[in-house]
Design a protein around this nucleic acid. Structure first.
Length: 624
RNA sequence: GCGCCGGUGGUCUAGCGGUAGGACCUGAGCCUUCCAAGCUCAUGGCCCGGGUUCAAAUCCCGGCCGGCGCACCA
């Protein structure tokens, strides 16, 4: 990890932000290599989770107004109350301490002042060392960055702690775009912010990070995934049950087995675990240092019904394991949409049409207010309210019949007004049972959410691809990045920076760039140094223009052609006078593979095509 | 946020009261016909702020940043 951080800074993958001002914890800037790598990882994610899944991508603001987070629950649950022990200095969740030591439940909702009072009243002591906590300040710690929208403080906003809310809050319109057809998926890749108490471990725990999220909206009663594309994907599953067992370990099994054996309860989650497994492998995560871990019951987020994490092992390969969460797969049920449905003015539902319209008898009320109004004035009459929205059963009880479903002999029903029972004539309530034809119902979709941390994936890929070996007795450091994500695909060098080799190499570099390949040109120093430089940033292939390329002898005994007669190099045969170096141009270059340092000669005219095939995995270097 | 340890060129490091030396990297030149070779030259540094002292990179205090442990991680 130390070596990697050093290489990351030296070679331009990532560095601490604003180091000139002392740096600031939890923020990193991606350098040229890191930015390119991150782009490539993000593009691989878009390809897999948006394009190939047929989902739609959106791009929401990072700042959202306060009501969004009131609805989502983040304002409450992100607001931790901490109390610090005056003796041993340990911080504890004040609300948890109170819940443990008293009969109070949901102490969080009592507010910090009341919790402080309770701690004093009950003389609660520090769970660690036993010192009294009375009188200690209850610190409010909100993990969201707060800001003001516009001048003044009347309109607070927060930097989103997850990209997801930007999708949920727009659900009504997104459902429109999806033509109200479930299931549909919406993806988003973007920054999220959490004011972490203690950023640690380089890129793995930062205050601003990039999330790649998919929110899949499903009808929980109808929709089921087609597991077949990933059914045979194998991954290690570390279930909650296995974690509870003393000697529990992750079990290697296919996605199909995980579902059939009930290890992963929800098939949608299982499907995305399969998709993610393939994706992580594709971008260069070592599958021997990867697993899925189910959240323990007490560990789940406030919205999650079931949750699995993807974890990568960043420990020393020969040493202790060091597992880190790099993605979460949560079955969020209808939590988020229901919340926004309640808090906002819009309906976060889709209309689900029945196969056949159903005709039901539905009790209705149509109160005769000219009769009831004068009698009951402004007081709320349950019977008249009951006609709106409530179920037929409620309406019938309230307006058409007593609780036992009967109508009194004198043709009245008993209605409660402000707790007082009144007899009201049935004729005045307008009670009737009508036949209604219903063609469907409004349902709140459930949400399945694969949420991947891009920075953590990037760091894992770097960690897992870091290699040290020896070539010709010299130590070598290289990154075994998959060609698809490597910041640079090909390095192009002239063997010597003269004799027209450089011109030839520049022309080749330009041609390759024209094809859209990511190319680095380098003519400095010795060739070996240039290879090592590219090795360190994970460039999978290097092309070298040598004397064979341009038709020079391999064994120059006489003076080399110097500046001034460069054009002669390509017309030497015709020009005569230098017949001992008159070999014809081979028009081939060497292509060197990073991982093996092996070289093959490739004709220049096939070079672009060959490199593209190598990059895309359509051609193996060994088959050249 | 607490505790322990640390912060010297881009990177790694020596110096630990008298204002800095090396290695690597980088740049220029020489040399060099495929894996960090060699030679010459050059660029570049004591985290920040106070204090003690004739004098502070060095000692003290505070801050910032980092590593590790604790807590936290919805």
């Amino acid at each position: 990890m130390t070596d990697l951080t050093e290489l990351a800074k030296r070679r331009g993958f990532f560095l601490q932000t604003a180091g000139a001002y002392g740096g600031t914890a939890g923020f990193y800037t991606f350098g040229p290599q890191g930015a390119a790598l991150k782009d490539n990882i993000e593009n691989a994610w878009r390809d897999r989770f948006t394009v190939r899944e047929g989902n739609m991508a959106v791009d929401a603001p990072t700042v959202l107004p306060e009501p969004v987070f009131e609805a989502s629950g983040h304002l409450d649950t992100f607001d931790d109350m901490l109390v610090e022990c005056p003796d041993c200095g340990e911080s504890h969740r004040a609300d948890h301490v109170v819940e443990d030591e008293t009969d109070y439940e949901e102490a969080e909702s009592l507010g910090p002042e009341r919790v402080g009072e309770i701690i004093a009243e009950y003389e609660i002591v520090c769970p660690t060392c036993g010192a009294g906590l009375a009188g200690q300040a209850i610190e409010d710690f909100n993990l969201m960055f707060e800001t003001n929208i516009g001048p003044g403080s009347s309109s607070p906003g927060y930097l989103r702690p997850e990209t997801a809310q930007g999708i949920f809050v727009e659900f009504p319109q997104l459902a429109e775009y999806a033509r109200h057809q479930l299931p549909f998926g919406v993806t988003q890749i973007g920054r999220a912010y959490r004011n972490e108490i203690s950023p640690r471990q380089s890129l793995m725990r930062v205050r601003e990070f990039t999330q790649a999220e998919l929110e899949l909206f499903i009808d929980p009663e109808e929709d089921e995934p087609d597991l077949s594309p990933v059914a045979d994907v194998t991954a290690p599953f570390y279930s909650a049950a296995a974690q509870d067992a003393d000697d529990g370990t992750a079990t290697e099994m296919t996605v199909r087995e995980a579902v059939d054996e009930g290890v992963v309860a929800d098939p949608w989650i299982a499907y995305y675990l399969g998709v993610a497994t393939e994706w992580y492998e594709r971008i260069g995560v070592d599958m021997d240092r990867f697993r899925f871990r189910q959240h323990l019951a007490g560990e789940r987020a406030h919205y999650a019904a079931d949750c699995w994490d993807a974890e990568s092992n960043l420990g020393d390969p020969d040493g202790e394991d060091d597992w880190h969460e790099i993605a979460g797969f949560a079955y969020r049920s209808d939590y988020d949409l229901s919340k926004h449905h309640e808090h906002s003015d819009e309906a976060y539902t889709v209309f689900k049409q029945y196969d056949e319209p159903v005709t039901v008898e539905r009790p209705t009320v149509d109160p005769d207010m000219s009769a009831l109004g004068p009698e009951f004035g402004g007081r709320e009459v349950e019977g008249s309210e009951g006609s709106r929205g409530a179920s037929g059963e409620t309406a019938s009880r309230a307006a058409g019949a007593n609780d036992d479903g009967t109508v009194d002999e004198d043709g009245t029903v008993t209605v409660e007004v402000d707790g007082e029972p009144y007899d009201v004539p049935v004729s005045d309530t307008g009670f009737a049972v009508k036949e209604v034809t219903e063609s469907g119902e409004h349902i709140v979709p459930h949400v399945v959410e694969p949420s991947l941390g891009i920075d953590r994936a990037l760091y894992t890929v770097l960690d897992h691809s870091y290699r040290e070996d020896e070539v010709d007795g010299e130590e070598r450091t290289y990154l075994e990045l998959p060609p698809e994500v490597a910041p640079t695909t090909v390095g192009v060098f002239p063997l010597m920076d003269r004799d027209g080799l450089d011109e030839e190499a520049r022309a080749i570099a330009a041609d390759l760039r024209e094809r859209g390949l990511s190319v680095t040109y380098d003519d400095s120093g010795a060739i070996g140094r240039r290879y090592r430089r590219q090795d360190e940033v994970g460039t999978p292939f290097c092309v070298t223009v040598d004397y064979a390329t341009i038709g020079e002898a391999e064994d120059p005994e006489e003076g080399e052609p110097r500046e001034g007669d460069r054009e002669e190099t390509s017309t030497r045969t015709a020009a005569g006078g230098s017949r001992e170096r008159s070999d014809p141009r081979e028009d081939t270059v060497t292509v060197r593979e990073r991982d093996t340092t092996a070289q093959k000669r490739v004709p220049i005219e096939e070079l672009g095509e060959t490199l593209e095939a190598l990059r895309d995995g359509d051609l193996a270097f060994a088959d050249l």
